[in-house]
Amino acid sequence: MTTKKNWPLWEVFVRSKNGLEHRHFGSLHAADEEMALENARDVYTRRNEGVSIWVVESKHITASNPENYGELFEPAQDKVYRHPTFYDLPDEVKHM
């Protein structure tokens, strides 16, 4: 490999229109944050896909470990009382 140091990897989040949240679009390489934003604009919004962009260097993202899936997410599966369908209503009440 010839290059001394590589451009780091960035994750790109794009808001496609106001009112919607930023969504993960993909990643790219850039040397600094300005370049990351510019590259994100040029790479991920060529077809008018966005009104706002976030970039974050990938190394700053802390992710949960799939091995902990059980303890992290399974306990939420049986907490049905958090959902409206858990509660019985008389048929006469159409909307609640």
Binding site: T2, T3, K5, D32
Partner: peptide, 19 residues
């Protein structure tokens, strides 16, 4: 790729200095 090396290196050096 080879002609671009000095360009990519410059961008890294600049980013480091700015940091």
């Amino acid at each position: 790729w080879e002609r671009g090396e000095w360009v990519r290196d410059a961008a890294v050096a600049y980013a480091d200095k700015k940091q």
